[in-house]
Design a protein around this nucleic acid. Structure first.
Lengths: 228, 228
DNA sequence: ATGACTGAAGTGGTCTGACCACTTGCCCCG
DNA sequence: CGGGGCAAGTGGTCAGACCACTTCAGTCAT
């Protein structure tokens, strides 16, 4: 049972770094202590510390300059990522991905449909494996976006999906995701695929909205159970 | 002037990893070679290789499991996409922002409409100032997204608009943006605002699509002039 | 023949200590 | 006062060792 995925070790250190930033009231552009000092302070080796720093840099929270030091990054990106609630994520997905599915149906690209088919086949095989199911769920949504032939839309879909994968969201989702719900999702995916393959823009839009609305409904049920 | 920021060393290795994934047709869930093998293959030390792996994990492109291996991550980004072309940006905007305008009209939030009004008034005053017009254009689109009451949608709108502000895009756009076109844009914005205020979802959707399609048409004209 | 347990091999995670490349600041000289 | 050089401090990388975890294969018991 996958349950709660253990936290990545570099995450633990990364959080300690963020706490230090907060405690010292460091603002964008302010300099953190040197790696050697941070490593000693947190009681870890420098390579381990660096892993955490790189994670934070990738997220835009830090800016690392060779020979110079480590600086607090520009806030815009970081703040945005923290702020979204699961409901906002789901709502945004319903709005955006419905429009994307509609466009994919207009274009009706056989290669995209073939990719969806491959993913659906693998989803069917992966029913007992929640992590795998989740991976393939994301891949399916990206494949739909790829069906628009617009790389930016695919990127955006991936970006929203990534929010779906945040630890908080995942912990709650674990309550309602199982073979039963993945079977439902698979059927809903199939309906989306069929509408796109048929070039039926309205149906594709409705199928995607239905899928994400149902997902939201399932999620709300899980949230209520979590609160109880 | 920031110029070209030198590439982060772990990025270089990360890109090599992504190439390897692409060359071998690896799909989500597929396993990569072990760290030791990858480090040898790329001619780097294992800690350096790990830094790249962690960057890719943070981005959701890889999934690293202790004792098990490195796997291609959930929503593999459309890796082939280098940079979004202006046409892709405009198309994506038409698709996504139309859906957003539709949702804003459904919600019909008076505060959002008031915000749009304020921006439109300032746009009218700013006709002779292209930079100001551009700022206000962006602000208007974000205000529409705020009308959905969904912070993530507002963020996404801001993110796409940011692409609109890229140097390449701006250079081309400068050919067709002037008081005449800003007057047209203002009128189009007005139509969007009116549809949203009236709670007419269909009209809002069409007004936004018309605005962005017209913007695209104006842009295509500029592109042709640039090529000549 | 099947299932469970154990051990080995392979995996990622971490450390130490050394060295390299880059940046910044200070001092000296013209 | 300005420019150049050097030292100190910074991040970047490496090699080699060891640890914790996972997976798979083989063996034993039922």
């Amino acid at each position: 049972m996958q349950g709660d995925k253990p936290r990545r070790p570099y995450r633990v250190i990364a959080d300690q770094i963020l706490e230090l930033v907060a405690e010292n009231g460091l603002a964008p552009g302010d300099r953190l202590p040197a790696e050697r000092e941070l490593a000693e302070r947190f009681g870890v080796s420098r390579p381990s510390l660096r892993e955490a720093l790189i994670a934070l840099e990738v997220e835009g929270r830090l800016d690392i300059r060779m020979g110079s030091g480590i600086y607090v990054g520009a806030p815009a990106r970081a703040a945005a990522i923290e702020g979204e609630s699961p409901f906002e994520v789901l709502q945004a997905r319903a709005i955006v991905e419905s429009a994307i599915a509609e466009e994919a149906a207009r274009r009706c690209d056989p290669a995209a449909v073939a990719a969806m088919d491959r993913i659906l086949a693998r989803m069917a095989e992966a029913m007992g494996d929640p992590a795998r199911s989740l991976d393939l769920d994301g891949a399916f949504h990206i494949a739909v976006a790829m069906g628009t032939g617009n790389g930016l839309l695919a990127d955006m879909t991936a970006d929203i999906y990534r929010l779906r994968l945040s630890p908080f969201f995942s912990r709650l989702a674990a309550h309602f995701e199982g073979p039963g719900t993945w079977r439902l999702a698979l059927a809903e995916h199939g309906a989306i695929r069929d509408a796109i393959a048929a070039g039926d823009a309205g149906a594709a839009r409705e199928a995607m909205r239905h899928h994400l609305t149902e997902s939201q409904r399932r999620f709300c049920g899980a949230f209520a159970a979590d609160a109880a």
